[in-house]
Amino acid sequence: MLRLDKTETWLLAATVILLTAGFLLPSWLTFILTLAFAKALVVQGVVIQMRAGLVSFGQGLFFCIGGYAVGMGGAFLDVHDVFALIGLGVAVAVGVAAIIGLLMTRYRDIFFAMLSLALSMILFGVIVKNPTLGSTDGFNVHAPTLLGWAPQGQEQKLAIFVLTVLIAGGLALALNRYMKSGLGGVNEAIKENEIRVEFLGLSPRWILYANYLFAAGISAVGGALTALATGHVDPEMAFWTTSGEFVFIALLGGTTHVAAPFVAAVLFALVRTYALELAPHSWQMILGFVLLAIIIFLPKGLWSLVAGKRRAAA
């Protein structure tokens, strides 16, 4: 029998609450939440690697692959089923990651960051050069179906919201298990000192490789869900500023808890929306100050607020 720890109970409860909320909240808010959760999945990909000490400034690569798989699957392969499309994105992303991961896992620190950025920018360039993919303008995604059901308009948005919450909840549970497993703990050790891990008889490189593949897959899911929600894909998804945003959110939340990226992504979306509204001319500055404030006052991310309190109470 599956036994749930405290985090898992909370995650399940949150999923259920969000699912009900989807039917009550105004649709603009569910839309923001859909995008935020989809983005949070990519952030999880960043966080997995960050825990082992690698910062990917090119996670947009797999985000973009996931999105374009949905777009191209509908436009060129005549695949319209949501699950088939997401599966396609994951398959392509993991396939690509399996090849370039062999190269990437040889790099650490800044070099890993820069090389991941370069690879993502190459994908950006390839799409820009390709007029059948709409170049920088991108193209619109065909209306998807869910196991034969073709929802329209508001119903469709709601369906994608529900799907996103379910996938996010499921992946969060899986990630939580991984984090708390022995292998998950090794990641921290790799970050602290790789050589000592080697001496223990483990191969840091292959653990990082597995992380890389998993991060690629989960990012592709995020990209696919984003494409389904907005109904449009463009190469901006692979641009380095998009990847920068994922790193931003990862730090905002912190790497200590599986729920942190979700909270951070929602907060980020809301801060940005309101910054954009209160100060259309200087919203980037507001984001910059928020980021600085977090780094200075909460070096372990927003989650340290929750964790800190719990420790104080204990």
Binding site: W28, F31, I32, L35, G138, T230, E236, L276
Partner: peptide, 13 residues
């Protein structure tokens, strides 16, 4: 980018 603009358009509406 377009993704953000779709989000903002929904906000406007």
């Amino acid at each position: 980018g377009a993704t953000k603009q779709v989000e903002e358009f929904r906000n406007l509406a």
